[in-house]
């Protein structure tokens, strides 16, 4: 998988970031889409949106990433944003055990609202805070395996594994789409599997929109 700045694309994959408040979801997003990290980012309100185009297996994939607020109160509203999502990063903070304990609750909410075939990765963020770690890697990996989730530890601050996490998720989504495990019908809202062609709105895509 490599970055692409092509102004047209084969697929749009909607991916949502979920998890407790303060685990670093917005910074994972900005690291992936803009290669930026803000020590001083403001709280996310409702949902925020960003996008990046990548190349996978010679195909151009536009990742449309939704960053959701982690606060309980918003959930009634954010549930609408799961619609059409084909991937999810369930993020916790490796230095705050509470944020890991709530993973099961987030998972339930995700499966309540999203496509049952959605690709999910459990992401232990802030791996740079290893000295403050309260969630052992093995424990999280076992949990992920038991739940059938992909797993990775990342650091948005140190730019560790962020690219890899998104790439693996996008690749897995693409595999599912290619094998038609995810039917077109259930994901058509966002997965515009429109081949490169003259009539596609992809023609009008803004060149170089993803800052890379």
């Amino acid at each position: 998988c490599s970055m692409g700045s092509d102004d047209s694309y084969n697929f749009v994959f909607k991916v949502v970031l979920i998890g407790e408040s303060g685990v670093g979801k917005s910074n994972l997003l900005s690291r992936f889409t803009k290669n930026e990290f803000a020590h001083d980012s403001r709280t996310t309100i409702g949902v925020e949106f960003s996008t990046r185009t990548v190349q996978i297996d010679n195909l151009t994939i536009k990742a449309q990433i939704w960053d959701t607020a982690g606060l309980e109160r918003y959930r009634a509203i954010t549930s609408a944003y799961y619609r059409g999502a084909v991937g999810a990063l369930l993020v916790y903070d490796i230095s705050k055990h509470l944020t890991y304990e709530s993973a099961e609750r987030w998972l339930k909410e995700l499966y309540d609202h999203a496509d049952p075939h959605i690709v999910v990765m459990l992401v232990g963020n802030k791996s740079d805070l290893d000295t403050l770690r309260t969630v052992p890697t093995d424990e999280a990996r076992d949990f992920a395996e038991k739940k059938g989730l992909m797993f990775m530890e990342t650091s948005a601050l140190g730019s560790t594994n962020v690219e890899a996490a998104f790439s693996e998720v996008l690749t897995a989504i693409h595999k599912k789409v290619a094998s038609r495990e995810v039917t077109r019908g259930s994901i058509s809202a966002v997965t515009l599997s429109s081949p490169l062609g003259p009539s596609s709105e992809a023609q009008e895509e803004r060149k170089g929109c993803c800052r890379s």
Binding site: F49, T51, K62, Q64, E201, E204, E205, R206, C209
Partner: peptide, 12 residues
Amino acid sequence: MVDFQGLLMLLQ
């Protein structure tokens, strides 16, 4: 702005 991504990025 003639696509979803562009519109959302603009509005945010």
